[in-house]
Amino acid sequence: MAKQHISFSLNGEQIDALVEPRELLVHTLRETLNLTGTHIGCETSHCGVCTVDLNGVSVKSCTVLAMQAHEGEVTTVEGLANGELHAVQQAFIEEHGLQCGFCTPGMLMRAQRLLQENPDPSEEEIRWGMAGNLCRCTGYQNIIKAVQSAAKKLQQEA
């Protein structure tokens, strides 16, 4: 299939790309645009390591076509820090919320969006709100602590 032109905002910057219609957004980000922070884990939309923000909501970029990002806004883990680390990034370090790091970009992208949807989540709400992201290393407990700690920090800043 002939490649088609798409244009979208990526981490605040307007970009253009040529993509095959069947191309998955995660491949465009990783291969064409060289942003390899977004990972590929299960390819069936279960593991969440490919989580990015698309038009203000969390999506699994392995199950979105690049064509569907056209004229949209995409944020990846590379766009999270703004001069200094985002509160969730800092909290994951402080609370030991990561080990091998492979799920981490997806976790962070989901966590920062969850805290916009619900700035003060309970443990239960974090568990449900993060349930689309798998981790094999941490047993989740320190990720929950990290999200709670980031929530506190963000509320203090607000």
Partner: peptide, 8 residues
């Protein structure tokens, strides 16, 4: 890792 700068 938190900045997506790991190299897998």
């Amino acid at each position: 890792f938190v900045q997506g700068k790991g190299t897998y």
